[in-house]
Each structure stands twice: as structure tokens, then as C-alpha cells.
Design a binder for these strands. Structure first.
Lengths: 143, 143
DNA sequence: TCCAAAGTTTAGCCATTGCTAAACCTAAAC
DNA sequence: GTTTAGGTTTAGCAATGGCTAAACTTTGGA
């Protein structure tokens, strides 16, 4: 392949991955938050999900339907939200990534406030390789 | 404010910022790429932009209209794409952020391939505070 | 028991960012 | 100077993820 074409292909792959990340990260944010609410309060209500995500109630209802189609959550009308097994896996995975990134930023010397906000945005765009490097950095620093 | 409400407010702020980032990052990707093409090839054509971003030609045309409305680019029909002063500023800013993040990942020991891909996703979600910390880390490491 | 407040859902709207297919220019080869 | 290949634009469609307003349940207090 000519170098110019190769460059374009490599670059477009990065952009494509970013776009793909965006479509899956919302689902992860939802299940992660639902898992947190269940752990914290014993149940997750649409109301509270909307409040924490900063969106309207109706938006949550719509997203929950999509998540049900994807087999991540279950819900009876007017009842609280449950996670399926797959939903729990995704949530756990998200929390793990989130924790690693946030911890990494804190170890790097970032303020708690900023670490919280930045990790929320960064979390979904970090490859396993980078995640491992972050872990390594934290444990080396702590030692 | 009660602690629970405060928590929800803090958290929703993070999500809101992430959503806001998403709407502006596309514009930055476009102008950044256009700037690169102008520097590399002397001119930026819609064709090449589409190829590198991995989207259809028509998508680029549509986005360019939005960017023109925002005063970031100019273009005569069937001609090459130019950046306004504001467009150049945004591009420069994007390149700076991008370079810092990519460099940081490389310094952390990430492979070139992964650093390129991850930096593309991360770039738009990194606060100034974190950016500074990344710079600090790189220069300390290099010393 | 009934009623009102709070939470949930539905309906219908909008903007964004993709796409394909077809029409349209431009420029280079002949 | 035509022709034609390749780049550009238009038109029209789809999915996503927001919103408000109005209708509907649930639940707890009077």
C-alpha cells in the first residue's frame, strides 16, 4: 500500500474507533450508574438515574428500552430497574476502568474534582494496553 | 444542600460536560485535519478529509456547511477548503492537546499504534489541569 | 377510603451525524 | 475541442439521543 493511503487508513481507523466508542459508552454509563444506585440505595429508580445523568426523565425511559432490547436491564412498568447478568458484567467492567483511570489521575497529582470529571470523559477511550500501563504506574508510585 | 442531592449534582455535571465535549470535538477534528492537509499537501480537499475521517463525501460536505456557519472554514463550491483565523486557532489548540496526550502516552510506555488511537479518543476530554500534569510528567521523565 | 404529590410513561418534536444514489462540475487526456 | 474520469454537491433517508407537555400509576397522608 502506498504510504499516503496507509496513513489515511490508519487515521480513519482511529476516528472510527472513537465513533464506535461513543455509541457504546452511553450504555455503559447507564448500567454503571444503575449498579451504583442498587448498591447504595437498594434499588434504582428512573428518577434518580435522570437526576444523576443530568437528563430528562423521558430520556431515561427511552434509553432503558434500548438497554432492555440489548439484554442489559429488565424492568416492569412503574417498578425499579434491575440489571441482567450481562448488565452486571458490563457495569463491573465499567467501574473497574473508571476506578483505574480516576486513581491514575489522582496519582498523577490531579485534584479530586478534576480527576472525577476527566475520568468520566476519558474512561471509555482507554485501551487495555493503556489501562495496564496506568495500573503499573500507580503500583510503582505507591511502592 | 443535602449530601445526596449534592452528589447527584456533581455527577450530572461530569456527564453534562462529557456530552458537551462530544458536540464540539467533531468540529475540532475537522479543522485539525484540514490544517494538517494544508501543511502537508498545500491544500485540503473534501475527498481527502472524508478518506482520513473514514466517512462519506456527503457527510463532509454537510459538516463543512456547519463549520462555515460557525466561522471556522471558508470554501467556494468545488474548490479547496480554507481555514479562517478562528479555524487556525482551534486547529492549533487541538494539535497542541493532541501532541501532549500522545507524547504522554508514549512516555508512559504505550506502543506507538495504541498511543495514536487512544490519544484520538482522549484528547477532547482532558482538562487544562490534567494537560499540565501530563506535560510536567513528560519533562520530568525526560530529564 | 380517597386524594394529592411524586414518579413514570407516552407522544411528538428537534438537532446531529451518518448513509446512498443521482446530478453536477472540473480538469486532464486524447 | 471533446470526452471522460474523478471529485463535489444535492436530495432524501435513518438512527441516536436530547427535550416538553400531557396522561397515567403508585403511594402515603388526611
Amino acid at each position: 500500500m502506498p504510504t499516503v493511503a496507509r496513513k489515511a487508513k490508519l487515521q480513519s481507523a482511529a476516528f472510527k474507533r472513537t465513533r464506535a466508542d461513543h455509541s457504546s459508552e452511553l450504555a455503559e454509563d447507564y448500567v454503571e450508574l444503575i449498579a451504583d444506585l442498587i448498591d447504595e440505595k437498594g434499588e434504582a429508580r428512573g428518577n434518580e438515574v435522570a437526576l444523576r445523568l443530568g437528563v430528562a426523565n423521558a430520556t431515561v425511559v427511552k434509553m432503558l428500552k434500548k438497554l432492555m432490547e440489548r439484554g442489559l436491564v429488565t424492568q416492569e412498568p412503574y417498578r425499579d430497574i434491575m440489571l441482567t447478568g450481562e448488565g452486571w458484567s458490563l457495569a463491573e467492567n465499567g467501574r473497574r476502568r473508571h476506578d483505574i483511570v480516576e486513581n491514575f489521575l489522582l496519582t498523577l497529582g490531579i485534584s479530586a474534582e478534576t480527576a472525577r470529571i476527566d475520568s468520566e470523559g476519558i474512561e471509555h477511550h482507554v485501551s487495555d494496553e493503556t489501562l495496564k500501563a496506568m495500573l503499573r504506574f500507580c503500583s510503582r508510585k505507591r511502592a
